[in-house]
């Protein structure tokens, strides 16, 4: 994925994010925010046993956090809790600059370069930190 393709995916998901919505009944809420106290996203998760049946979000954040939330939602819905944790682990590998499973991450690979800029890694990871916390809470 080249720089321009990555940018297009990020901008598309920022301008038209997946499932930016208010929660309905039966959704668990979790807030996720970063230390610079700007990005602030609420995630709402609907479980069907250990399957992430639906995720919606609202909140205020930068282009990287919003788009990352959108892509994560798109890629995690329908996954079992443990599969989702595996996906999240690979995402962290990518943003940490380690080897990672490109095939598994799919279009989320668009953050490979962006996450090397300043504090942007934190922005890209933000939604995954939130959903990871929710999953660990669910399966503990």
């Amino acid at each position: 994925m080249d720089k321009e393709q990555s940018r297009e995916i990020i901008m598309e998901n920022y301008l038209h994010p997946q499932n930016r919505d208010l929660p309905h009944d039966g959704y668990d809420a979790i807030n996720t925010r970063n230390e610079s106290c700007i990005d602030n996203i609420n995630l709402y998760i609907k479980w069907n046993e250990d399957i992430l049946e639906d995720i919606v979000f609202d909140g205020e954040a930068c282009a990287v956090s919003i788009s990352s939330t959108s892509i994560m939602i798109k890629n995690l819905i329908g996954k079992k809790a443990k599969e989702a944790l595996e996906y999240i682990k690979e995402f962290y590998h990518m943003t940490n600059g380690d080897d990672f499973n490109q095939e598994l991450l799919g279009d989320a690979c668009c953050y490979l370069e962006v996450s090397k800029q300043g504090n942007r890694k934190v922005c890209a990871n933000l939604p995954l930190k939130g959903i990871e916390k929710a999953i660990l809470e669910k399966i503990k």
């Binding site: 106290c37 700007i38 954040a61 942007r120």
Partner: peptide, 25 residues
């Protein structure tokens, strides 16, 4: 444009500005 995105844009040109609520929530 979200304030943090403006700050990142300017950072690309070595301009340091602050984005956020500046601790005045």
């Amino acid at each position: 444009v979200f304030s943090q995105d403006v700050a990142y844009y300017l950072n690309k040109y070595n301009i340091c500005v602050r984005a956020g609520n500046h601790c005045a929530k």
